[in-house]
Design a protein around this nucleic acid. Structure first.
Lengths: 225, 225
DNA sequence: TGAATATGACTGACTGGTCAGTCATATTAT
DNA sequence: ATAATATGACTGACCAGTCAGTCATATTCA
Protein backbone atom coordinates (compact mmCIF):
# COMPACT_ATOMS: atom_id res chain seq x y z
CA UNK A 1 0.00 0.00 0.00
CA UNK A 2 2.42 2.53 -1.19
CA UNK A 3 -0.46 4.72 -2.26
CA UNK A 4 -0.15 8.46 -2.63
CA UNK A 5 -2.08 10.62 -0.23
CA UNK A 6 -5.46 11.69 -1.42
CA UNK A 7 -5.37 15.22 -2.76
CA UNK A 8 -7.50 17.89 -1.15
CA UNK A 9 -10.15 19.72 -3.08
CA UNK A 10 -13.58 19.15 -1.59
CA UNK A 11 -15.46 20.62 -4.54
CA UNK A 12 -14.67 21.12 -8.16
CA UNK A 13 -13.90 24.86 -8.47
CA UNK A 14 -14.90 25.11 -12.08
CA UNK A 15 -13.62 28.56 -12.77
CA UNK A 16 -10.16 29.10 -14.15
CA UNK A 17 -10.19 28.71 -17.88
CA UNK A 18 -13.58 30.30 -18.56
CA UNK A 19 -13.42 33.53 -16.62
CA UNK A 20 -14.35 35.23 -19.88
CA UNK A 21 -17.79 33.62 -20.16
CA UNK A 22 -19.50 36.27 -18.04
CA UNK A 23 -17.66 39.51 -18.63
CA UNK A 24 -18.88 41.18 -21.75
CA UNK A 25 -17.71 44.72 -21.10
CA UNK A 26 -14.68 45.84 -23.11
CA UNK A 27 -13.32 47.51 -19.99
CA UNK A 28 -13.41 44.40 -17.85
CA UNK A 29 -12.54 42.10 -20.66
CA UNK A 30 -9.41 44.01 -21.49
CA UNK A 31 -8.38 44.33 -17.88
CA UNK A 32 -8.90 40.64 -17.26
CA UNK A 33 -6.94 39.71 -20.38
CA UNK A 34 -4.10 42.00 -19.35
CA UNK A 35 -3.94 40.37 -15.93
CA UNK A 36 -4.01 36.94 -17.42
CA UNK A 37 -1.11 37.88 -19.64
CA UNK A 38 0.80 39.36 -16.75
CA UNK A 39 0.32 36.16 -14.81
CA UNK A 40 1.49 34.07 -17.73
CA UNK A 41 4.55 36.26 -18.22
CA UNK A 42 5.41 36.05 -14.53
CA UNK A 43 4.84 32.30 -14.58
CA UNK A 44 7.26 31.91 -17.45
CA UNK A 45 9.90 33.79 -15.49
CA UNK A 46 9.40 31.76 -12.36
CA UNK A 47 9.06 28.36 -13.97
CA UNK A 48 12.11 29.02 -16.12
CA UNK A 49 14.20 30.09 -13.16
CA UNK A 50 13.17 27.43 -10.65
CA UNK A 51 11.49 24.62 -12.55
CA UNK A 52 7.88 23.58 -12.06
CA UNK A 53 8.15 21.98 -8.63
CA UNK A 54 10.27 24.66 -6.99
CA UNK A 55 8.45 27.65 -8.46
CA UNK A 56 6.17 29.36 -5.93
CA UNK A 57 2.82 30.81 -6.88
CA UNK A 58 3.31 33.54 -4.30
CA UNK A 59 6.29 34.68 -6.33
CA UNK A 60 4.35 34.48 -9.57
CA UNK A 61 1.64 36.65 -8.02
CA UNK A 62 4.13 39.15 -6.68
CA UNK A 63 5.90 39.38 -10.01
CA UNK A 64 2.63 39.81 -11.89
CA UNK A 65 1.62 42.47 -9.34
CA UNK A 66 -1.50 40.56 -8.51
CA UNK A 67 -2.88 38.78 -5.44
CA UNK A 68 -2.43 35.05 -5.29
CA UNK A 69 -6.18 34.46 -5.42
CA UNK A 70 -6.34 36.22 -8.77
CA UNK A 71 -4.27 33.48 -10.31
CA UNK A 72 -7.04 31.07 -9.37
CA UNK A 73 -9.61 33.21 -11.17
CA UNK A 74 -7.78 32.47 -14.40
CA UNK A 75 -6.28 29.02 -13.87
CA UNK A 76 -7.58 25.97 -12.04
CA UNK A 77 -4.29 25.14 -10.36
CA UNK A 78 -0.54 25.32 -10.66
CA UNK A 79 -0.41 22.56 -13.23
CA UNK A 80 -3.05 24.17 -15.44
CA UNK A 81 -1.16 27.41 -15.33
CA UNK A 82 1.96 25.61 -16.46
CA UNK A 83 0.25 23.75 -19.28
CA UNK A 84 -1.60 26.84 -20.44
CA UNK A 85 1.66 28.75 -20.49
CA UNK A 86 3.20 26.21 -22.84
CA UNK A 87 0.12 26.13 -25.02
CA UNK A 88 -0.11 29.89 -25.33
CA UNK A 89 3.54 30.25 -26.19
CA UNK A 90 3.54 27.53 -28.81
CA UNK A 91 0.23 28.00 -30.59
CA UNK A 92 1.57 30.80 -32.82
CA UNK A 93 4.10 28.32 -34.14
CA UNK A 94 1.48 25.82 -35.19
CA UNK A 95 0.30 28.06 -37.99
CA UNK A 96 3.80 29.17 -38.89
CA UNK A 97 4.87 25.61 -39.54
CA UNK A 98 2.37 25.11 -42.34
CA UNK A 99 3.64 28.26 -44.05
CA UNK A 100 7.11 26.78 -44.04
CA UNK A 101 6.07 23.97 -46.37
CA UNK A 102 4.94 26.35 -49.09
CA UNK A 103 8.27 27.57 -50.45
CA UNK A 104 10.07 25.65 -53.16
CA UNK A 105 13.61 26.87 -53.00
CA UNK A 106 16.79 24.81 -53.27
CA UNK A 107 18.14 23.14 -50.16
CA UNK A 108 20.99 25.45 -49.36
CA UNK A 109 18.66 28.45 -49.38
CA UNK A 110 16.02 26.59 -47.40
CA UNK A 111 18.62 25.54 -44.90
CA UNK A 112 19.70 29.10 -44.33
CA UNK A 113 16.05 30.07 -43.92
CA UNK A 114 15.57 27.32 -41.38
CA UNK A 115 18.48 28.43 -39.25
CA UNK A 116 17.32 32.00 -39.40
CA UNK A 117 13.82 31.01 -38.41
CA UNK A 118 15.03 28.92 -35.50
CA UNK A 119 17.34 31.56 -34.15
CA UNK A 120 14.97 34.48 -34.64
CA UNK A 121 11.74 32.78 -33.57
CA UNK A 122 13.01 30.44 -30.91
CA UNK A 123 16.58 30.85 -29.75
CA UNK A 124 16.54 34.62 -29.34
CA UNK A 125 13.09 34.46 -27.80
CA UNK A 126 11.29 33.44 -24.65
CA UNK A 127 10.29 30.37 -26.62
CA UNK A 128 13.76 29.08 -25.92
CA UNK A 129 12.75 28.82 -22.27
CA UNK A 130 9.51 27.14 -23.27
CA UNK A 131 11.36 24.49 -25.25
CA UNK A 132 13.66 24.00 -22.30
CA UNK A 133 10.68 23.60 -20.00
CA UNK A 134 9.01 21.05 -22.23
CA UNK A 135 12.14 18.98 -22.39
CA UNK A 136 13.03 19.24 -18.71
CA UNK A 137 9.52 18.83 -17.30
CA UNK A 138 7.84 16.89 -20.08
CA UNK A 139 8.43 13.51 -18.52
CA UNK A 140 6.30 14.38 -15.53
CA UNK A 141 3.55 15.88 -17.71
CA UNK A 142 2.72 13.22 -20.28
CA UNK A 143 -0.28 15.26 -21.41
CA UNK A 144 2.01 18.13 -22.18
CA UNK A 145 4.48 15.97 -24.04
CA UNK A 146 1.65 14.57 -26.09
CA UNK A 147 0.27 18.02 -26.84
CA UNK A 148 3.67 19.21 -27.94
CA UNK A 149 4.25 16.15 -30.08
CA UNK A 150 0.83 16.19 -31.71
CA UNK A 151 0.44 19.89 -32.29
CA UNK A 152 3.99 20.96 -32.98
CA UNK A 153 6.63 18.30 -33.38
CA UNK A 154 4.83 15.80 -35.60
CA UNK A 155 3.62 18.57 -37.90
CA UNK A 156 7.03 20.14 -38.10
CA UNK A 157 8.62 16.79 -38.81
CA UNK A 158 6.08 15.93 -41.50
CA UNK A 159 6.52 19.29 -43.20
CA UNK A 160 10.28 19.05 -43.16
CA UNK A 161 10.14 15.48 -44.42
CA UNK A 162 8.08 16.54 -47.39
CA UNK A 163 10.57 19.23 -48.29
CA UNK A 164 13.44 16.81 -47.87
CA UNK A 165 11.83 14.13 -50.03
CA UNK A 166 11.42 16.68 -52.77
CA UNK A 167 15.07 17.65 -52.44
CA UNK A 168 16.11 14.03 -52.50
CA UNK A 169 14.27 13.48 -55.77
CA UNK A 170 15.89 16.56 -57.18
CA UNK A 171 19.24 14.99 -56.31
CA UNK A 172 20.13 17.68 -53.80
CA UNK A 173 20.76 15.13 -51.07
CA UNK A 174 23.27 12.30 -50.94
CA UNK A 175 20.92 9.87 -49.19
CA UNK A 176 17.71 9.58 -47.23
CA UNK A 177 19.36 10.02 -43.81
CA UNK A 178 17.64 13.34 -43.19
CA UNK A 179 14.29 12.00 -44.33
CA UNK A 180 14.63 9.25 -41.77
CA UNK A 181 16.04 11.47 -39.03
CA UNK A 182 14.84 15.05 -39.45
CA UNK A 183 15.80 15.47 -35.78
CA UNK A 184 19.37 15.92 -37.02
CA UNK A 185 18.41 19.33 -38.37
CA UNK A 186 17.45 20.84 -35.02
CA UNK A 187 19.72 18.77 -32.81
CA UNK A 188 22.45 21.44 -32.68
CA UNK A 189 19.84 24.08 -31.91
CA UNK A 190 18.51 22.11 -28.95
CA UNK A 191 22.01 21.37 -27.73
CA UNK A 192 22.80 25.07 -27.91
CA UNK A 193 19.74 25.91 -25.81
CA UNK A 194 20.97 23.71 -23.00
CA UNK A 195 24.61 24.61 -23.45
CA UNK A 196 23.82 28.29 -23.09
CA UNK A 197 22.13 27.69 -19.77
CA UNK A 198 24.84 25.44 -18.39
CA UNK A 199 28.26 26.11 -19.82
CA UNK A 200 28.26 29.44 -21.58
CA UNK A 201 30.24 30.95 -18.72
CA UNK A 202 33.06 28.48 -19.38
CA UNK A 203 32.91 28.27 -23.14
CA UNK A 204 30.37 30.27 -25.12
CA UNK A 205 28.79 28.73 -28.18
CA UNK A 206 27.75 30.39 -31.43
CA UNK A 207 24.44 28.76 -32.33
CA UNK A 208 24.23 30.12 -35.82
CA UNK A 209 27.74 29.02 -36.69
CA UNK A 210 27.23 25.58 -35.26
CA UNK A 211 23.91 25.07 -37.02
CA UNK A 212 25.41 26.22 -40.28
CA UNK A 213 28.39 23.89 -39.94
CA UNK A 214 25.99 21.07 -39.29
CA UNK A 215 23.82 21.92 -42.28
CA UNK A 216 26.79 22.17 -44.60
CA UNK A 217 27.65 18.60 -43.80
CA UNK A 218 24.12 17.26 -43.82
CA UNK A 219 23.55 18.70 -47.27
CA UNK A 220 26.84 17.46 -48.67
CA UNK A 221 26.18 15.58 -51.90
CA UNK A 222 29.09 13.17 -51.67
CA UNK A 223 29.35 10.16 -49.37
CA UNK A 224 32.27 9.87 -46.94
CA UNK A 225 35.67 8.72 -48.14
CA UNK B 1 7.45 15.98 31.28
CA UNK B 2 9.33 12.90 32.36
CA UNK B 3 12.92 13.70 33.13
CA UNK B 4 14.83 10.96 31.42
CA UNK B 5 18.34 10.71 32.75
CA UNK B 6 20.96 10.33 30.11
CA UNK B 7 23.28 7.59 31.40
CA UNK B 8 25.41 7.65 28.28
CA UNK B 9 29.11 8.08 28.50
CA UNK B 10 29.92 8.72 32.11
CA UNK B 11 33.66 8.89 31.78
CA UNK B 12 36.25 8.56 29.09
CA UNK B 13 37.21 4.89 29.29
CA UNK B 14 40.65 5.27 27.85
CA UNK B 15 41.10 1.99 26.09
CA UNK B 16 44.70 2.64 25.39
CA UNK B 17 46.29 1.18 22.28
CA UNK B 18 44.22 2.34 19.30
CA UNK B 19 41.49 4.30 20.97
CA UNK B 20 41.89 7.16 18.54
CA UNK B 21 41.98 4.82 15.55
CA UNK B 22 38.24 4.45 15.95
CA UNK B 23 36.43 1.14 15.77
CA UNK B 24 36.24 1.04 12.01
CA UNK B 25 35.96 -2.69 11.85
CA UNK B 26 35.94 -4.30 8.40
CA UNK B 27 32.59 -5.78 9.39
CA UNK B 28 30.96 -2.48 10.16
CA UNK B 29 32.79 -0.70 7.42
CA UNK B 30 31.49 -3.09 4.79
CA UNK B 31 27.97 -2.88 6.11
CA UNK B 32 28.05 0.91 6.10
CA UNK B 33 29.41 1.00 2.57
CA UNK B 34 26.65 -1.31 1.40
CA UNK B 35 24.06 0.98 2.98
CA UNK B 36 25.60 3.98 1.32
CA UNK B 37 25.43 2.27 -2.04
CA UNK B 38 21.82 1.24 -1.49
CA UNK B 39 20.94 4.84 -0.69
CA UNK B 40 22.71 6.11 -3.80
CA UNK B 41 20.92 3.56 -5.97
CA UNK B 42 17.57 4.46 -4.50
CA UNK B 43 18.34 8.14 -4.90
CA UNK B 44 19.08 7.67 -8.59
CA UNK B 45 15.72 6.00 -9.04
CA UNK B 46 13.80 8.68 -7.20
CA UNK B 47 15.61 11.68 -8.63
CA UNK B 48 15.27 10.26 -12.13
CA UNK B 49 11.58 9.64 -11.73
CA UNK B 50 10.55 12.85 -10.00
CA UNK B 51 13.35 15.35 -10.45
CA UNK B 52 15.36 16.85 -7.60
CA UNK B 53 12.73 19.12 -6.10
CA UNK B 54 9.85 16.64 -6.18
CA UNK B 55 11.82 13.61 -4.99
CA UNK B 56 11.14 12.77 -1.33
CA UNK B 57 13.84 11.49 0.97
CA UNK B 58 11.25 9.35 2.73
CA UNK B 59 10.82 7.49 -0.54
CA UNK B 60 14.55 7.18 -1.04
CA UNK B 61 14.83 5.70 2.45
CA UNK B 62 11.97 3.31 1.85
CA UNK B 63 13.40 2.17 -1.45
CA UNK B 64 16.86 1.67 0.06
CA UNK B 65 15.23 -0.21 2.96
CA UNK B 66 16.81 2.14 5.45
CA UNK B 67 15.51 4.65 7.95
CA UNK B 68 15.48 8.25 6.91
CA UNK B 69 17.99 9.19 9.56
CA UNK B 70 20.49 6.81 8.04
CA UNK B 71 20.64 8.95 4.94
CA UNK B 72 21.92 11.78 7.09
CA UNK B 73 24.69 9.61 8.48
CA UNK B 74 26.11 9.39 4.99
CA UNK B 75 25.15 12.67 3.37
CA UNK B 76 24.87 16.15 4.78
CA UNK B 77 21.57 16.97 3.11
CA UNK B 78 19.39 16.35 0.08
CA UNK B 79 21.59 18.44 -2.16
CA UNK B 80 24.79 16.69 -1.09
CA UNK B 81 23.17 13.35 -1.79
CA UNK B 82 22.27 14.55 -5.26
CA UNK B 83 25.71 15.92 -6.03
CA UNK B 84 27.47 12.86 -4.66
CA UNK B 85 25.26 10.66 -6.78
CA UNK B 86 26.32 12.47 -9.92
CA UNK B 87 29.97 12.41 -8.91
CA UNK B 88 29.99 8.71 -8.12
CA UNK B 89 28.28 7.81 -11.38
CA UNK B 90 30.57 9.93 -13.53
CA UNK B 91 33.97 9.44 -11.98
CA UNK B 92 34.57 6.12 -13.78
CA UNK B 93 34.24 8.00 -17.04
CA UNK B 94 36.94 10.48 -16.19
CA UNK B 95 39.63 7.85 -16.56
CA UNK B 96 38.00 6.24 -19.57
CA UNK B 97 38.14 9.47 -21.52
CA UNK B 98 41.92 9.64 -21.44
CA UNK B 99 42.14 6.09 -22.82
CA UNK B 100 40.06 7.22 -25.75
CA UNK B 101 42.75 9.58 -27.00
CA UNK B 102 45.33 6.79 -27.29
CA UNK B 103 44.12 5.05 -30.45
CA UNK B 104 45.24 6.21 -33.86
CA UNK B 105 42.76 4.68 -36.27
CA UNK B 106 41.15 6.32 -39.27
CA UNK B 107 38.08 8.47 -38.74
CA UNK B 108 35.42 6.09 -39.97
CA UNK B 109 36.61 3.39 -37.60
CA UNK B 110 36.97 5.83 -34.75
CA UNK B 111 33.49 7.12 -35.43
CA UNK B 112 32.03 3.66 -35.17
CA UNK B 113 33.94 3.16 -31.94
CA UNK B 114 32.59 6.40 -30.57
CA UNK B 115 29.01 5.46 -31.27
CA UNK B 116 29.49 2.06 -29.75
CA UNK B 117 31.07 3.56 -26.67
CA UNK B 118 28.30 6.08 -26.23
CA UNK B 119 25.52 3.55 -26.64
CA UNK B 120 27.10 0.86 -24.51
CA UNK B 121 28.50 3.03 -21.74
CA UNK B 122 25.89 5.73 -21.56
CA UNK B 123 22.70 5.24 -23.50
CA UNK B 124 22.03 1.65 -22.45
CA UNK B 125 23.06 2.46 -18.90
CA UNK B 126 21.90 4.27 -15.82
CA UNK B 127 24.35 6.94 -16.87
CA UNK B 128 21.74 8.00 -19.37
CA UNK B 129 19.60 9.11 -16.42
CA UNK B 130 22.58 10.85 -14.90
CA UNK B 131 23.20 12.84 -18.07
CA UNK B 132 19.53 13.70 -18.15
CA UNK B 133 19.69 14.87 -14.55
CA UNK B 134 22.72 17.05 -15.15
CA UNK B 135 21.07 18.72 -18.10
CA UNK B 136 17.66 19.15 -16.51
CA UNK B 137 18.84 20.20 -13.05
CA UNK B 138 22.23 21.66 -13.85
CA UNK B 139 21.01 25.22 -14.06
CA UNK B 140 19.93 25.15 -10.45
CA UNK B 141 23.22 23.57 -9.32
CA UNK B 142 26.00 25.70 -10.80
CA UNK B 143 28.55 23.80 -8.76
CA UNK B 144 27.40 20.60 -10.36
CA UNK B 145 27.48 22.06 -13.85
CA UNK B 146 30.98 23.29 -13.21
CA UNK B 147 32.12 19.91 -11.89
CA UNK B 148 30.67 18.19 -14.91
CA UNK B 149 32.24 20.68 -17.30
CA UNK B 150 35.66 20.63 -15.67
CA UNK B 151 35.98 16.95 -14.95
CA UNK B 152 34.16 15.41 -17.88
CA UNK B 153 33.05 17.66 -20.69
CA UNK B 154 36.11 19.82 -21.18
CA UNK B 155 38.39 16.77 -21.11
CA UNK B 156 36.22 14.87 -23.52
CA UNK B 157 36.08 17.84 -25.84
CA UNK B 158 39.82 18.35 -25.71
CA UNK B 159 40.54 14.70 -26.39
CA UNK B 160 38.13 14.58 -29.30
CA UNK B 161 39.53 17.83 -30.67
CA UNK B 162 43.02 16.39 -30.70
CA UNK B 163 41.86 13.35 -32.61
CA UNK B 164 39.95 15.51 -35.04
CA UNK B 165 42.88 17.85 -35.68
CA UNK B 166 44.99 14.85 -36.51
CA UNK B 167 42.34 13.59 -38.92
CA UNK B 168 42.05 17.02 -40.49
CA UNK B 169 45.78 17.10 -41.19
CA UNK B 170 45.52 13.63 -42.67
CA UNK B 171 42.90 15.00 -45.03
CA UNK B 172 40.14 12.84 -43.64
CA UNK B 173 37.90 15.80 -42.96
CA UNK B 174 36.48 18.33 -45.38
CA UNK B 175 36.88 21.27 -43.02
CA UNK B 176 37.46 22.29 -39.42
CA UNK B 177 33.75 22.37 -38.52
CA UNK B 178 34.05 19.44 -36.14
CA UNK B 179 37.17 20.83 -34.55
CA UNK B 180 35.27 24.01 -33.82
CA UNK B 181 32.06 22.25 -32.77
CA UNK B 182 32.80 18.79 -31.36
CA UNK B 183 29.34 19.03 -29.78
CA UNK B 184 27.98 18.01 -33.18
CA UNK B 185 29.27 14.51 -32.57
CA UNK B 186 27.17 13.81 -29.48
CA UNK B 187 24.24 16.05 -30.30
CA UNK B 188 22.16 13.21 -31.77
CA UNK B 189 22.96 11.06 -28.76
CA UNK B 190 21.74 13.71 -26.34
CA UNK B 191 18.65 14.34 -28.42
CA UNK B 192 17.92 10.62 -28.36
CA UNK B 193 18.19 10.54 -24.58
CA UNK B 194 15.47 13.14 -24.27
CA UNK B 195 13.40 11.81 -27.14
CA UNK B 196 13.27 8.38 -25.55
CA UNK B 197 11.86 9.82 -22.36
CA UNK B 198 9.30 12.03 -24.07
CA UNK B 199 8.17 10.74 -27.42
CA UNK B 200 9.19 7.14 -27.82
CA UNK B 201 5.60 6.05 -27.27
CA UNK B 202 4.55 8.05 -30.34
CA UNK B 203 7.54 7.50 -32.56
CA UNK B 204 10.46 5.37 -31.41
CA UNK B 205 13.95 6.41 -32.39
CA UNK B 206 16.94 4.23 -33.23
CA UNK B 207 19.89 5.95 -31.56
CA UNK B 208 22.59 3.95 -33.25
CA UNK B 209 21.12 4.49 -36.72
CA UNK B 210 20.68 8.20 -36.14
CA UNK B 211 24.19 8.66 -34.78
CA UNK B 212 25.62 6.71 -37.69
CA UNK B 213 23.69 8.75 -40.23
CA UNK B 214 25.00 11.87 -38.57
CA UNK B 215 28.59 10.67 -38.57
CA UNK B 216 28.43 9.64 -42.21
CA UNK B 217 27.64 13.21 -43.11
CA UNK B 218 30.02 14.85 -40.70
CA UNK B 219 32.89 12.82 -42.09
CA UNK B 220 31.99 13.45 -45.73
CA UNK B 221 35.05 14.73 -47.56
CA UNK B 222 33.28 16.83 -50.16
CA UNK B 223 31.64 20.20 -49.59
CA UNK B 224 27.95 20.73 -50.40
CA UNK B 225 26.82 21.30 -54.00
C1' DT C 1 36.18 -18.54 27.85
C1' DG C 2 32.38 -15.59 28.51
C1' DA C 3 30.24 -11.95 31.35
C1' DA C 4 30.39 -7.13 31.56
C1' DT C 5 30.95 -3.04 29.30
C1' DA C 6 31.53 0.20 25.43
C1' DT C 7 30.60 1.71 20.80
C1' DG C 8 28.38 3.87 17.06
C1' DA C 9 25.39 2.64 13.24
C1' DC C 10 20.74 2.78 12.89
C1' DT C 11 15.93 4.03 13.86
C1' DG C 12 11.57 6.69 13.31
C1' DA C 13 8.58 9.88 15.79
C1' DC C 14 8.76 14.60 15.88
C1' DT C 15 9.41 19.69 14.66
C1' DG C 16 9.29 23.75 12.19
C1' DG C 17 8.99 25.93 8.00
C1' DT C 18 6.84 26.03 3.44
C1' DC C 19 3.42 26.57 0.06
C1' DA C 20 -0.83 25.16 -2.89
C1' DG C 21 -5.23 26.19 -2.64
C1' DT C 22 -9.52 28.53 -0.12
C1' DC C 23 -12.77 31.94 1.17
C1' DA C 24 -14.68 35.88 3.78
C1' DT C 25 -14.17 40.49 2.79
C1' DA C 26 -13.13 44.62 0.02
C1' DT C 27 -12.94 47.07 -4.34
C1' DT C 28 -14.46 48.46 -8.91
C1' DA C 29 -17.09 48.93 -13.13
C1' DT C 30 -21.64 49.34 -14.89
C1' DA D 1 -27.02 49.71 -6.20
C1' DT D 2 -24.95 45.29 -7.11
C1' DA D 3 -22.70 41.94 -9.78
C1' DA D 4 -18.23 40.97 -11.15
C1' DT D 5 -13.52 40.98 -9.60
C1' DA D 6 -9.77 41.13 -6.67
C1' DT D 7 -7.53 40.51 -2.26
C1' DG D 8 -4.51 38.32 1.21
C1' DA D 9 -4.92 36.09 5.67
C1' DC D 10 -5.62 31.53 6.60
C1' DT D 11 -5.60 26.21 6.54
C1' DG D 12 -3.60 21.95 6.49
C1' DA D 13 -0.85 18.69 3.88
C1' DC D 14 3.75 17.91 3.21
C1' DC D 15 8.54 17.10 3.90
C1' DA D 16 13.65 18.16 5.01
C1' DG D 17 16.11 17.67 8.73
C1' DT D 18 16.76 16.31 14.02
C1' DC D 19 17.80 13.60 18.00
C1' DA D 20 16.76 10.66 22.02
C1' DG D 21 16.95 6.09 22.27
C1' DT D 22 17.96 0.99 20.64
C1' DC D 23 20.67 -2.86 19.48
C1' DA D 24 24.09 -5.63 17.22
C1' DT D 25 28.79 -5.96 17.46
C1' DA D 26 33.34 -5.14 19.39
C1' DT D 27 36.40 -4.83 23.36
C1' DT D 28 37.89 -5.58 28.02
C1' DC D 29 38.82 -8.17 31.88
C1' DA D 30 37.81 -11.78 35.39
Amino acid sequence: MTEKVRPRRKLAPRKGVAAAAAARTPQRQARAAARRDAILAAALDEFSAKGFAAARLDDVAKRADVAKGTIYLHFADKESLFQELIRVMLSPMIGAIAALGAGDMPMNVLGERFIDLFVREVYDTRRRDVIRLIITEGRRFPKLAEFYYREVLSRLIETVRTLLRRALERGELADDALVRFPQLLVAPGIIAIFWSGLFDRFEPLDVRAMMRANLDHLFATRRPA
